[in-house]
Structures are given as structure tokens and as C-alpha cells.
Design a protein around this nucleic acid. Structure first.
Lengths: 208, 208
DNA sequence: GTCTATATTTAGATAGAC
DNA sequence: GTCTATCTAAATATAGAC
């Protein structure tokens, strides 16, 4: 049974290191954050960090591996809501909520930067993004069926686009301005079927 | 007069270095790009780079200083178009056009990352962004006046939001999917006044 | 398991020849 | 002005004591 205790302690220690590293990576970036910084913030020595993680990149990946199960839970919470359009808007709100933390922007940027060089990291974030996209696409599909979403949209593509717009909220650096309302307005109007009496035509899209 | 020739040659050499550095920064990032890399790509020695630029960060800034006059020209090209809404959509198209080059995504990400640490760089990009935002805000204001844009929008805030969405397009630069159509649809519908016969209410915005 | 001490590597920047 | 050669500093990762 001592083995079990050890495994738990080790997991706690990994979690400690991961959380401290996440804060540092967000604030300073990957390269500018030294393993010595992480070790100090987590309360151990540099060698201690290398005992729990193979290398610095493994620490970085661990920060994002926490998101995968969280995304699954989030998406499933909205999967069975009756009104799909409402569900989409509320889900989008929750996806954008972490952006209120100013450091979230830094972490997203750092993720994009590192993604080019670490295939394992790409895999982790792709799986997370995929879960969200599939969840959104299902809701969009249901919206098309019940007439609250424009039939001209392709669910998978529209879902990916909405994810892009959510990313925009993370980029919004100005903490003074809350983009939540702009985000809801943007997504709601993007999805809406054309008004029957709208004479403005093509909603800005190109012909062809 | 020999002085003039020298100054021209020096300007050319700086341009050479800047262009080569821009490609490398976009592909590899700031930290991962060594001054030796830049020197090799530009056809001189590392010491040569330091002859033309004070340090590595000055090279990085130079990459973005080229954008400032280009943005001014772009914005002024649309300032006097008759239909403001059309002008906005076309301007947004042109702002997003460079996103088709996958390296543009890398460069934007790198810019966002470095902006936190180089106040002079912040100044350069803030001036560029300001020109675009003011141009967009003017067009939005005109749209409100002529009834093609929702009066509920605050021009400066709406302009900043549109810029943010354009930035997001750069981040998710997927060469396979052209975001032009989704972007136009999104911006057009974001700006549009509420349809008079629309019974759906508040377009997704929160009350309060 | 966790530390101290250090080996190894690499990059930015400079000195001085030509 | 542009090079070769090099200095200095710092960071990752490891070896080995406890």
C-alpha cells in the first residue's frame, strides 16, 4: 500500500510543478522561463523537476493535458440542452471565460508558437480542440434541423470558425473591455438564418 | 556626395537583413533564430549584423516598422468610398489577405509574444494598429449615420473588435480553408442594424 | 526521492585585423 | 565597412552524494 501513497504524492508533486510552470510560461513565455524558475516556484531544485518530467517540453505539455478531460465535461454538459442555439451561445461563453484572466492570452500565444516544434503537443491540443469542434458541430446541426440556424452553413466548418472567433477573445489584450457581449452578438448573428424580409441580400458574402 | 551613396548602400543592406530576418523569425520564432542564422541568410557575418543593428531586438522591430506606412496607404484608399459598409468589408478583406501566407501566422504569434518585453516594439505596432482602428471607426461612424450600421455600436469599440477577429484569422491560418467568406459574413452581420421584422429579440446579447 | 555541484552547449556581443 | 576569432554568460541536463 505504500506504493499507492507514493503514486499519489508523486501525482501531487507533478500537479504542483505543472501549475507553477503554467503561470510562468504564460507570463514569460517558454524560452524565457528557465527550469530553475519553475523549480523555485514549485519549491524544489532544478534536478527535482527533471526527476518528474523528462525534459522542459514535457512540463509544457502537461500544462495543456489538463484541458482535455475538462473540455469533454464542458461539451457534454451542453450536448442535451433543448434549444441548440442557446446552448451554443452559452458554451461559447464558457469557452471564452478563461480569457478574462490576462495571462490566458500569453499562454495561448505560447501554445501556438510551440505547437510548430512539438508533435506530441500538437496531438494533445488537437484532441482537445476536436472534442469542442464536434460538440459545436452537433449543436449547429440540430439548429439547422429546427430552423434556428442558417441551412447554408456546413456544421463542421461553422464550428471551426466559431472556435477561431473564440480565440480572438483570448487575443483581446485590453482588460478594460469585456468582449463577451461582442462575442455573443457575433456568433448569434453569424449563425442566424437570413431574415425573410431582409432586402440586403447576401450578408456580405461573395457570389460565385 | 559619396556620403549619399554610402547611405543608400547602408539602407539596402539593412533592408536585406530585415527581409531575411522576417522570414526566419516567422518560420522559427525569435529565440530560436540566432543572429548567425540571420547573417548567413543575408550573406554577411554575425558581426556584420551588429554593425547595422544595435542588437537582435532592433532587427525584429525593423521587420514591423515596414508595416506602418503600408497601413496608412491601405486605410486612406478606403477612406472616401461612398458606401461605408462596402468599404469596411473590402478593407477587412485586404487586412486578412496576408493571412493566406502561412508564415504570416508565425510572425503575428511571435509579435504578440515579444510585445510584452519590448516597449519600443509595442510603440511601433500600436501606432500601426491605431491607424487601422481609426480608419475602421470612421467608416463605422459613417455607416451609423447613413443607417447601414447598427446605432447600438460604439465605433471605436466595434473597430477594435473587428481587428481582433481579423487577428484570429491569422492565427488559424489553414491553407486548406479560405476564411474570406466566413469573415465577410461575420463582419457584415455583426455591423448590421437589427431587422425591423426580426422577432428573435436581442441577437444573443445579455440584458442588463 | 531530493539535493549540490557541474559538465556541456550555445548564443549574443565585442575586439581588433584588414 | 566587413571579416575572423573569441569572450562571457546562461541554460539544459546529468552525476553522484545523502
Amino acid at each position: 500500500m505504500a506504493r499507492t501513497v507514493d503514486a499519489e504524492r508523486a501525482a501531487q508533486r507533478r500537479e504542483q510543478i505543472t501549475l507553477a510552470a503554467g503561470r510562468l510560461f504564460a507570463a514569460q513565455g517558454f524560452e524565457a522561463t528557465t527550469v530553475a524558475d519553475i523549480a523555485r516556484a514549485a519549491g524544489l531544485s532544478t534536478a527535482g523537476v527533471f526527476y518528474y518530467f523528462q525534459d522542459k517540453r514535457a512540463v509544457f505539455r502537461a500544462v495543456f493535458e489538463r484541458d482535455l478531460p475538462l473540455s469533454s465535461i464542458l461539451v457534454s454538459r451542453f450536448a442535451d440542452v433543448e434549444a441548440p442555439t442557446t446552448a451554443i451561445l452559452d458554451l461559447v461563453d464558457e469557452l471564452a471565460a478563461p480569457a478574462r484572466d490576462p495571462s490566458a492570452s500569453g499562454l495561448l500565444v505560447e501554445l501556438l508558437r510551440q505547437a510548430d516544434r512539438d508533435p506530441e503537443l500538437v496531438d494533445v491540443v488537437a484532441r482537445t480542440a476536436r472534442i469542442v469542434r464536434d460538440g459545436l458541430a452537433d449543436l449547429i446541426e440540430r439548429g439547422i434541423t429546427d430552423g434556428t440556424v442558417d441551412v447554408a452553413l456546413v456544421p463542421a466548418e461553422a464550428a471551426a470558425w466559431i472556435q477561431t472567433v473564440v480565440d480572438a477573445v483570448f487575443l483581446n489584450a485590453d482588460p478594460a473591455r469585456d468582449p463577451t457581449s461582442a462575442l455573443r452578438r457575433t456568433v448569434a448573428r453569424y449563425l442566424a438564418p437570413p431574415s425573410p424580409n431582409d432586402t440586403r441580400g447576401n450578408n456580405g458574402e461573395h457570389h460565385g
